[in-house]
Structure formats: C-alpha cells, structure tokens
Nucleic acid binder design. Sequence first.
DNA 1: CGTTGACTTGACCGTCTTCAAGTTTAGTGG
DNA 2: CCACTAAACTTGAAGACGGTCAAGTCAACG
Lengths: 252, 252
Amino acid sequence: MTHATAQSERKYPCDRCPLLHRDSFRRFSDDELAFVSGFKKGELFVDRGATVMCEGASNPHLYTVLTGWGFRYKLLPDGRRQIVNYVMPGDLIGLQGTLTGEMQHSIEALSPMTLCMFERNELMTLYRAHPPLAYDITWLASREECMLDENLLSIGRRSAVERLAYLVAFLVGRARTSGLLSGNAVSRLALTQQHMADTLGLSLVHTNKTVRKLAQRGLLRWTDGGCEVLDVEGLKGLARWEDQEARQRPFL
Amino acid sequence: MTHATAQSERKYPCDRCPLLHRDSFRRFSDDELAFVSGFKKGELFVDRGATVMCEGASNPHLYTVLTGWGFRYKLLPDGRRQIVNYVMPGDLIGLQGTLTGEMQHSIEALSPMTLCMFERNELMTLYRAHPPLAYDITWLASREECMLDENLLSIGRRSAVERLAYLVAFLVGRARTSGLLSGNAVSRLALTQQHMADTLGLSLVHTNKTVRKLAQRGLLRWTDGGCEVLDVEGLKGLARWEDQEARQRPFL
DNA sequence: CGTTGACTTGACCGTCTTCAAGTTTAGTGG
DNA sequence: CCACTAAACTTGAAGACGGTCAAGTCAACG
C-alpha cells in the first residue's frame, strides 16, 4: 500500500476547510484555493489550557484558527498578566514580528483548538503570487488593530461595569460571526472570572462583584465555568457601544 | 511658460522625501521609488491642533507622515476621550477600515504636520505591482499592533507612576527613531498633561501629581507646555520595560 | 475523603477621581 | 501699557471605586 498524499491525510484539507462555507467569510477562487492548499504546511491540535505560542520565543510559523478559541496575552516581569485579545476561527495569528519571528505575546487555548499551519518565510511567495490574498492579510491585521483600539478605549475610559458589559458583548459578537456559537440557543462563554479580570485590568475580586451586578440586572447569568449572555443589546447599551454593521471578511 | 509637472510643484517630491535617507528607514529600489512617486497623489499640511481625520467620517485617502506628529484617539458618546497611539514620521495612517473607508478613530496634530497622500482604492495596484511594498504595509500594520498590545498591558496592569514612566520612555524612543528629536540635546515632548491623562486612562489631576512624582525622582522636568526627559533608562526601569533592539523598518 | 480550582463574600485600605479654588502665562483689545 | 480672558498647570480636601487580605463554599476528581 502506497503512502497517501500529505493532504489526504489531513483532517481538514483546504477544500473541506470548516471556514470555507460560512457566511461571514469570503469565498476563494479555485486558483486561490489550490495555492492556499499548497501553502498550508500542517495542522496543529492543542488541548484546552495549552500554550499555542510563547512570548520571547521565536516561531517560524503562522496559524489560522480553524476551530476552538483562545486568548492572546502579555506578562510583566513580576507576573502581572494582561489579556490583549481573543483568537477565534478565521483569525490569523503570529503575524506580529514578521521580521524577527520573535513573539511579543503568548497565546493559550480556552478550548481544544485546531490550527492551520503556514511557514512565515514563505509569506513573500504568497504576496507575489496572489496579491488579493496579501491584501486580505493586511485587512486582517488592520481589523485586529481596530479591536485593540476599542479595547484600549474600554480599559482606559470605561468604569468596571461598563467594561465588563462591553467585553461580554464584544466576545459574543465575535463568537457568533466566527461560528463558535451556533444556532439561537443562549450564548455561553466558557472562561473563568480570572480571564475576565485579566482582560479588563481589574482584580479577580472586583470582577466577581461586577459580574454579580450585571447578573442582578438580568443581563447575564454565571453558570459553572462560564457566562450565559441573556441580553446583548442591554449590555451594549450599558457600555455605550455603537457598533458598525458586520461585513463579509476575508480569511487565509 | 508651460506648467511644471505636478511633482516638481511639490515641496517634497519623493526623491527628496525627508524620510529617504534616515538610518531607521529602509531604502527603496529605483523601481519602487518611481512607483511610489506616481502613487503619491498630494501633500497635506496642517497646523497644530487641526483634526487630520475624523471618527465616523469616510475617507478615501491614506497618508504617510513626513514631518511633525499627532495623536490618534477615540471618543465615547459622553465625551470621554482615549488616546490610543501617536503618529510620527514614517507612520502610515488611515489603513483601518480599508474596506469601508469609514474611520474608527480621529487624528489631531500636536505640531504642524506634513503628510503624503495616497488613494485608498489604488492600494490593490500597489499590491499587484510591488509585493515587497505590500509586505511592508503589512509589517507596518503589525508593528502598530505590537505598540497597541504594549499600551494595553500598560493601562491594564501598571500603576499610575509606572504607566507614565512607560509612556514617556515610549514616546522618546519613537520620536528619536522617527527623527522627530534630533541630536543629543535633552529630549523634549511638547504635549499637555491633558494629553497624557487621556493616554494613560487617568484624570488630569492625578496625572499632574504623577508627573510631579517623576520630577522629584529626577527622571523628567516639566517646562512650559512640555516635558523634558532626563533619564530614559530610569523611566524604563521604573516601568519594568524590556525593549527589543531597534531594527531597520520599511515605510511607504 | 482529601485536594484542587473556581467562585463568593465581607472588611479594610489605598489609589485615583471629583470638586473647587488658585496661580501663571500668553494672547487680545482698549 | 494695562485690564481682560483663556488655557494650562497646581494644590488640597473629600469621597468613590477598586484593590488586597482573609476566610469560606462548592463541585469535580482521584
């Protein structure tokens, strides 16, 4: 019996990529699909709690999240942790430090994750062969920038209650469009209050009390190891968040 | 007498771009220079205090900062302001919202500024014609992302004193490599304490008291309408900031 | 059945905000 | 030249918001 091709051994060959036929992602041309198929160099499966990449280490790979989610964070030397953003299906990670390859942040999985692996130093090939894909990568980077801007506004200028309301609404919104949350069941975010605290720039204790306040208002409910979102609009209102309509986005 | 070409009427034709021969910027090939020269569509001169672009408005242009500096900020509906980053020579601005063209933030000049203007919807031409330049744009975007990550860490997890120390060190560092601060005179940042407060997520009053503390430690001095930086290393130490060595960067 | 991780709660305290008033400087028009 | 104004900085006092400490509950797991 001969070896199957590398691609057929994959759990997610590109033509069956779980992102391909989701409404919020744009389609590839046949050409692009073929190229990306060859550009992909492997698949990475990690468990909940695993470190996907690590601050300070150099990493020759880029990844696109296929399933599951995680968070991106930075540490101060004395251990204080700040979660800067979350990664969800369709997100391209590891672009930061394209030149050095040295990561400026770490990423940890919040659920089992599947990632699609690329070689960082083949990026230029993609830029030469498929300018529209290159354009998409830039678009993804600038989208990330927008999210970070919003988060900065939130941490810098919103009160604890507003901040938490914003965070929960933000996460549900992203989770929905990235396909993490299916159907019309109650949205549920499986993260600990410690994660929320480290995202909001608050202490664990105060985060807990803030969660409780939002629960009393009927905006959310805390159920073991996660947060059920009851009223997204209410949360957005509380956070004074005006959102722009969702658009079709590219992915790699 | 015939009209001169558009280019020769410019104050800064690309072959005399003030960024061209600065150590911290990479060189263009002749080819690239010629292309960029045609890609450039105009020059924008603004006074100190002018709004360069405005949140919510759609803007068909991209700009590269040639001289001067400014800040990028967002507002909450009730007027609370958060400065998310500063723009300095070599920075490409307006990339956010490439698709919609609708700005998610505003930019205001902190000094007279000169900007080099491009057409947003010609970007794809650049991506097709000069993949290495496209790559550079992505690099710039991911560099911005790194800065925002750092700022988030700072606002989320550092105390007021650490935060201010970080901010000042950060600004001096950038100002030096972007050519805003020349020679070896004492570095001087011409911004108000209100700007600092809105960057740090602090109130004006507390920012003032924090400035005073750093001044007492001999790390900086406040002189009318600006801040003289006396000891950058001391500031970095206080902020517990480990920086990565500077590299040659691209610019557009 | 002890251990561990996550959540909860109360008490106390410090950082930072708000309010208020005052100083200094530069700019303006009489 | 001088009063008038506005912007930026300064300072003190009071109080809110959020941090820290400490103790305790609960469920899951081996």
